[in-house]
C-alpha cells in the first residue's frame, strides 16, 4: 500500500528488494497474532537468523572512531582516577602513599553513606517511575501531527532545557513558606502546607519532583521517537479486530515501545543514581543530612573535605553500582523481548 522505503528502493547503486517477512499483511488476523507478527517482524535475532546466510557482518574498524574518542576522553580518565582510590592523597599534598582497600572499607562502613545510599535509591525509583509515566502520558497525548501538539511538545520539553542551577533557584521560591504552593494549599483548604525543602521528611520528595519535572521531557522525546517507529498497520489490524483504545495500548503500543522504554529507563535511572545538580542548587544535602546523595557525598569528600582518595573510592563504587543496574535493566528489557 504505502512504500515509505521507496527512497532506498530507487537509490543507486543500492537496490533493495524488501522480503515479505518485513511486512506481513496483518489486517484481520486477531490480536494475539498481531502481537506475534509485530515481534517477529522486527526481532533482531530472528531477523539475523533469517538473513544470516547472505548478510555480511560489519567489521570492528567501523567501531573504531566512536570507541577511540570515548576511550581517550572517558575511559582513560575514569581508570586513571581509580588509582587515587587506593591512596590516602588529600588532593593537595605533593606526596601520598597506598592504603590498599582502606578507603573502600571506610566508604562502605560509614553511617552517613548508608543514608546517602537509601536517599539515592529512593530518588532513583521515584525519578525513573515518575518521569517515564509522565513522559509516556504526554508522548501519547501529543503524538498526533498538529501545530497545537508541536507547541505543546516544545513546552513539555522546556524544563529539560533549563539548567539545574536555575531550576533549583526557581523551585526554592516555589516551595518557600510564602510561595505559590503554600497559597495553593490554603486555597484548596488542605490544611497546613508541608515544609517542602525545609522539612527533613519532605525535602527529598520535593527534590525528586523537581528532577521528574526535568527528566520527563527527555522521556517524552525518547518515547515520541519510539511511537514513530511503530507500524501503523498493527493498530489498524487491532482496531479492525475490535480492540479498544486501552487494549491497543496494552497489547500493541506498550510492547512495541519497549526499546524506547529501555533507553528512557536507563537514562532516568542513571540520572537518579548520579543525582547531584538539583540537590546542590536547592538544599545542598540538608536540612541536616536529609537529602545527601552518593554524588553529593563524593563531591564534598573530594573537593570540600580534601579527602580525594576517599572520594575516588566512592566514585569507583558508584561506577560499579550504576553499571550493574543499567546493564541489568538492558538485560531485562532484552530478555522480555526475546521471550515474547
Amino acid at each position: 500500500m504505502r512504500s515509505p522505503t521507496a527512497r532506498q528502493d530507487e537509490a543507486k547503486p543500492v537496490r533493495v528488494e524488501p522480503t515479505s517477512t518485513g511486512r506481513s499483511p496483518v489486517v484481520g488476523i486477531g490480536l494475539r497474532r498481531v502481537r506475534d507478527a509485530a515481534r517477529t517482524s522486527v526481532h533482531p535475532r530472528r531477523a539475523l537468523r533469517n538473513g544470516g546466510a547472505t548478510a555480511q557482518r560489519p567489521g570492528f574498524r567501523l567501531a573504531l572512531p566512536g570507541l577511540g574518542l570515548y576511550s581517550v576522553f572517558v575511559a582513560y580518565p575514569a581508570v586513571a582516577t581509580a588509582y587515587y582510590a587506593f591512596t590516602n592523597w588529600n588532593g593537595l599534598a605533593q606526596h601520598w602513599h597506598f592504603v590498599g582497600l582502606k578507603n573502600f572499607v571506610s566508604v562502605l562502613s560509614s553511617g552517613l553513606e548508608r543514608t546517602a545510599f537509601t536517599n539515592t535509591l529512593e530518588a532513583t525509583v521515584g525519578i525513573a517511575l515518575g518521569a517515564n509515566i509522565l513522559g509516556l502520558a504526554i508522548a501519547l497525548l501529543l503524538q498526533k501531527r498538529s501545530r497545537f501538539n508541536y507547541v505543546l511538545r516544545l513546552l513539555w520539553f522546556l524544563p529539560a532545557a533549563l539548567p539545574s542551577i536555575v531550576a533549583g533557584y526557581i523551585w526554592t521560591f516555589i516551595y518557600s513558606p510564602s510561595g505559590p504552593l503554600d497559597k495553593v494549599w490554603v486555597l484548596l483548604h488542605l490544611g497546613a502546607a508541608p515544609g517542602f525543602l525545609g522539612s527533613p521528611n519532605e525535602a527529598l520528595p520535593s527534590i525528586i519532583a523537581i528532577a521528574i519535572w526535568q527528566v520527563s521531557g527527555y522521556a517524552m522525546v525518547l518515547l515520541l521517537a519510539g511511537l514513530q517507529a511503530i507500524d501503523e498497520q498493527l493498530h489498524e489490524a487491532a482496531r479492525v479486530d475490535g480492540a479498544g483504545v486501552l487494549q491497543r495500548l496494552r497489547f500493541v503500543t506498550l510492547p512495541l515501545l519497549r526499546p524506547a522504554f529501555a533507553v528512557s529507563f536507563v537514562f532516568s535511572t542513571v540520572t537518579g543514581l548520579l543525582l547531584f545538580d538539583v540537590v546542590v542548587a536547592t538544599t545542598n544535602g540538608g536540612p541536616g543530612y536529609a537529602t545527601e546523595t552518593l554524588a553529593t557525598q563524593l563531591y564534598k569528600q573530594s573537593f570540600e573535605y580534601n579527602n580525594f582518595g576517599w572520594g575516588m573510592a566512592m566514585g569507583v563504587l558508584m561506577g560499579i553500582l550504576v553499571l550493574g543496574v543499567s546493564a541489568a535493566m538492558l538485560w531485562i528489557f532484552n530478555r522480555k523481548e526475546a521471550r515474547a
Binding site: T5, Q8, V14, R15, V16, E17, P18, T19, T21, G22, S41, V42, H43, P44, A47, L48, N50, G51, T54, A55, Q56, G66, L69, Y70, V72, F73, V74, L222, A225, G226, A229, L256, P259, A260, A262, V263, V266, F267, L330, E337
Partner: peptide, 28 residues
Amino acid sequence: GATLTPLSVLIYRSFLQRMPIEYEDAAY
C-alpha cells in the same frame, strides 16, 4: 563527543534492534 557517546549508542542500539535486517541484506 566522548561523554555523550554511551547514551547515543544506547538510543541507536535500541531502535536498530527493531529494524528488519532484510533491507540491509538485500543491499549487501
